[in-house]
Structure formats: structure tokens, C-alpha cells
């Protein structure tokens, strides 16, 4: 019974985590900001290290750290007229370096680094599951409520702003929810693999369909199938769940490429 509960919880966490990231993926893809997923997840690693050393709540500290850093990058780039992608890359690497130094200096050196890097859905607790569930519901609600604003923000942010569409507010909300999504799903998806789940579903579906509401729906469906399939594969082959989900999503991506060529 214990094993069954534990497995069901891990499976539901995988599905909700993949779904939650996948419904952001069409907008991440259209806005060409997949590097942001990579950056946020690496910055989160520094947040985790700070929380670990200070003995504070891991998720809250990590989330605050990532959001503060994201705004700091925006401010620095504007203030000193720096290329934003360069600033992001610098902070991504420095965050990793900072995290490694903190962990190596702290008494918590023995903490399981690989479970943060690659994710371990089997470590998800009931409380984690509730958080992942809330995050998936919030992501879904956000996309449904702000669909048109996100659509025109992705088309041309400058023109959308001129036409008085509330793109600044929508963009702030989008980035905060993207960061939250990454931090909440780190345990299940892992720092290195979380960004793959933020781009692969939409990249696959855009090869087959170009109508955005259909792309969002099918990205979610594909992510759920990959989560269940990846979970089953990881169970049978005794391999990490996050990695098998990403590999399965990549296989779907390759199939979509061949179908696009044919069509």
C-alpha cells in the first residue's frame, strides 16, 4: 500500500509538473525566451544554496532570490545599456559559481546535488504535490485569463503597448509565474532538465499546427503523455524520471520534424 501511494504521488507530480511547464511553452517559444528558463533554473540553484546555509525555507528564499535577480538583470541592462542576453548569461554562471562555493563551505556539503540537478520525482512529498497542483492550476488560469494580452505581447510588445494593451503588467505576471513555476517544479524536473520541458512541447506541436489555442492544448496533451510514458519507462528501466520524460519529449519532437517534412 505504501509503495502504491508513493508511486501514485510521484506519477501525479510528474504529470502536473510537465503540464504546468508545457502550457507556458508556446509563449516561451513565440517570444524566443527559452534561455530565460535556463537562467531562472540556474539562479534557483544559488537560492537553494543560500536557504540551505541559512537554514531557511528553501522554496520561498529561492523564489525571492530568482525574482530579485531577474529584476536586477533588467535594471542593470537598462542602466548601463548592456545587452540583456549577455547580462543573463553572466548572472546564470555567477549564480552557479556562488552556489557551488556556498555548498562547499557549508556543513551541508553532503546534500544530494544530483537530485537538484536532474530532479527526483520520488522525493516529492504530499505537501510538494499540493504545491505542484496549485501551480498547475495557477498556470492554466493565467493562460486562460490573459490569453489575448499574451498573444499580442508575443506578436509585438512595442506595438501592443502603443495600442494600450496592458503588456507591462501581463509581462511582469508572466515572468513571475514562469520563475515560480520553475522553482516549484525543480524537485520533480531538476535544474538542468526543467528548461527542456519549457520548450520541447511547443517546439514539437508548432511543427504540426500553427493555430495557437490548438498548440497550447496539444502541448499540454503531449506533456501529459510524455510524463506518463517517461514515468513508466523510468520504472521499468530503473532510470531517472525527469531524464526519461525529456528523452520521450525529444523523441516526439523528432517524429514531428519528419511529419513536418512530409507535409
Amino acid at each position: 500500500m505504501f509503495t502504491f501511494d508513493f508511486l501514485i504521488r510521484a506519477l501525479i507530480a510528474s504529470v502536473l509538473s510537465s503540464l504546468s511547464l508545457a502550457i507556458f511553452s508556446p509563449f516561451v517559444s513565440l517570444r524566443r525566451i527559452s534561455y530565460l528558463g535556463e537562467a531562472f533554473s540556474h539562479m534557483a540553484f544559488a537560492g537553494i544554496a543560500i536557504a540551505l546555509v541559512a537554514g531557511l525555507s528553501g522554496r520561498l528564499v529561492t523564489l525571492i532570490f530568482v525574482i530579485v535577480l531577474a529584476y536586477l538583470i533588467g535594471w542593470l541592462s537598462k542602466r548601463y545599456k548592456l545587452e540583456e542576453t549577455n547580462t543573463i548569461t553572466i548572472f546564470l554562471s555567477v549564480s552557479m559559481a556562488f552556489a557551488i562555493i556556498l555548498i562547499s563551505l557549508s556543513s551541508a556539503y553532503a546534500f544530494d546535488l544530483s537530485s537538484y540537478l536532474f530532479g527526483n520525482v520520488l522525493l516529492v512529498s504530499s505537501a510538494d504535490l499540493i504545491l505542484v497542483g496549485i501551480m498547475a492550476a495557477l498556470s492554466l488560469a493565467f493562460i486562460l485569463i490573459f490569453y489575448h494580452q499574451l498573444f499580442y505581447l508575443s506578436y509585438n510588445a512595442e506595438m501592443a503597448q502603443f495600442l494600450r494593451i496592458p503588456v507591462t503588467f501581463t509581462n511582469h505576471l508572466f515572468l513571475i509565474l514562469l520563475a515560480t513555476n520553475i522553482v516549484i517544479n525543480l524537485k520533480a524536473a531538476g535544474i538542468i532538465l526543467v528548461s527542456a520541458q519549457l520548450i520541447l512541447p511547443a517546439a514539437t506541436i508548432f511543427n504540426l499546427v500553427r493555430r495557437l489555442p490548438v498548440v497550447i492544448f496539444l502541448s499540454a496533451v503531449l506533456a501529459i503523455i510524455a510524463a506518463i510514458g517517461g514515468f513508466a519507462l523510468s520504472w521499468w528501466l530503473n532510470i531517472p524520471t525527469g531524464a526519461s520524460i525529456v528523452m520521450l519529449e525529444f523523441v516526439f519532437f523528432l517524429i514531428s520534424l519528419t511529419l513536418r517534412k512530409r507535409s
Binding site: 498573444f151 499580442y152 494600450r164 494593451i165
Partner: peptide, 22 residues
Amino acid sequence: RFPATAKDIVLMGLAAELKPAQ
């Protein structure tokens, strides 16, 4: 390649009138 039709672009001129979820 942006997934919008001509009508979507024209409707952009009215999107400021939309409230969230509308």
C-alpha cells in the same frame, strides 16, 4: 511565422477594450 491571421491583427486594435478573461 507567427500564428496569427489577418483578422487577429486587426482585432489587436480593439484588444485594449478587453478586460482579463474577456
